[in-house]
């Protein structure tokens, strides 16, 4: 079974910084980082009119479906996807097989520049996620939930 994803303060800040920088360097509108299971990890840029939770879930569904298609034709994965819209376009890249980097951009930038910057950002992200995995696997990295009581859980459902 896949182990649970645990995010710590330090890595979280590093990840957010990478996404922020990618937004600026690529001249993108928004950058999202989504876990393959549909949980949003980070969002940068003009996120205010976007339903980020829905975006994360649909991204994961899309990547899962494309991954299934890839296997059907004997590919392991389609690591990159590009969708061109009338105004905004979307680029998705799998990072370290575990998370998906989503970049939304318009004609103030170019696909070439976006691709180039994504490459750099995804290399950095891959390192950060490797560090996270090592940290979660380290002994003593228990969940905060070890200390919760049955009463805590009951209270959540009391109303």
């Amino acid at each position: 079974m896949a182990s649970q994803l645990v995010m710590y303060e330090e890595e979280f800040h590093r990840i957010n910084a990478v996404c922020d920088r990618l937004t600026k360097d690529a001249n993108a509108k928004v950058v999202f980082l989504v876990d393959k299971n549909g949980q949003l990890i980070s969002a940068a840029g003009q996120t205010n009119n976007i339903d980020t939770t829905s975006l994360a879930s649909l991204t994961a569904g899309n990547v899962a479906a494309m991954g299934g298609l890839a296997k059907l034709i004997g590919e392991n994965e389609f690591p990159n996807q590009f969708h061109e819209g009338a105004k905004d376009s979307l680029y998705m890249t799998l990072v370290g097989g575990r998370v998906v980097l989503v970049v939304i951009f318009d004609n103030r930038t170019s696909l070439g520049l976006v691709r180039l910057r994504i490459k750099k950002a995804s290399d950095e992200l891959e390192k950060i996620f490797a560090a996270l995995a090592a940290r979660s696997a380290a002994p003593g990295a228990g969940s905060p939930f070890a200390e919760i009581s049955d009463a805590d859980i009951d209270n959540l459902f009391s109303e």
Partner: peptide, 9 residues
């Protein structure tokens, strides 16, 4: 697979 974020709690 749950996702626990210590930073955003």
């Amino acid at each position: 697979m749950s996702f626990i974020n210590y930073s955003s709690r």
